[in-house]
């Protein structure tokens, strides 16, 4: 089943009177359970595609189906609910809520979903154990290293068991050792939980780990290789 189905997707930005064609007719399909990377140089359009797939931005043309829904035809509220229920995000800059503890950050998506307290506690404890941060549950993000914060971000994306996890350059701020650990973790979670991971990256290590590698250049798919 296709988690994402992009057909001839266009995305234009308007900057200082100029139109920038970030995506020029991208057609891609990602199936459930994939562990894929979208690679390309800076400005190639890889992050743009990830943002459109995550319903963080609106397409200029074409169609983008996420979880079977045409996101181009959805309201702001429906898009928020789609993100809430089906999509987990991992950002390059972690983007944790600084005033919440590690476990509160992780449980936040479940709170948004209205999961009952007991289940929130159990599921949070499980993902905390999965990412190896049981001892740090009560810490605040600022009291942790970059690698630890990225683990929290992964746990936060995973905790609601979304159909799709989108990771925008997840290793960019980490050294290679920590980056490898994070990738190992995501791979094992992909295998154990069966959720789809799609990365945007220009990190060779991420490309090596990916089971499918899509190369984008100048807003167009250059190559799509399943390993």
């Amino acid at each position: 089943m296709a988690v994402i189905k992009a057909k001839n997707v266009l995305k234009d930005y308007h900057l200082e009177g100029q139109t920038i064609h970030a995506l020029r007719g991208v057609s891609l399909e990602f199936k459930s359970g994939e562990f894929a990377a979208i690679a390309g140089p800076s400005g190639s359009g890889k992050s743009t595609f990830l943002h459109l797939a995550g319903c963080l931005d609106a397409i200029t043309g074409g169609t983008m189906m996420v979880g079977g829904s045409d996101v181009g035809k959805m309201t702001r509220k429906d898009l928020a609910l789609l993100r809430r229920h089906n999509i987990g995000f991992i950002f390059q800059a972690y983007n944790l809520i600084p005033v919440l503890s590690v476990e509160e950050n992780i449980s936040f998506p479940l709170t948004l979903l209205g999961v009952d307290k007991k289940e929130i506690k159990e599921r949070t404890a499980k993902v905390l154990a999965d990412v190896g941060l049981e001892e740090m549950a009560k810490r605040k993000p600022k009291e942790m290293s970059g690698g630890q914060q990225q683990r929290v971000a992964i746990a936060r994306a995973l905790v609601k068991k979304p159909a799709l996890i989108l990771a925008d350059e997840p290793t960019a701020n980490l050294d290679s050792k920590i980056g490898r650990e994070i990738l190992e973790l995501m791979l094992s979670l992909n295998e154990s939980e069966g959720c789809t991971f799609i990365f945007s990256t220009h990190d060779q290590m991420v490309m090596d780990y990916a089971r499918r590698l899509v190369r984008i250049r100048d807003g167009q798919v250059e190559a799509d290789e399943v390993k």
């Binding site: 995550g54 963080l56 702001r76 509220k77 928020a80 609910l81 789609l82 993100r83 809430r84 229920h85 999509i87 995000f89 950002f91 983007n95 809520i97 936040f108 998506p109 948004l112 979903l113 936060r156």
Partner: peptide, 9 residues
């Protein structure tokens, strides 16, 4: 980020 996680306006 919070909107990306699914918070409504």
């Amino acid at each position: 980020m919070m909107r990306a996680l699914g918070m409504t306006d």
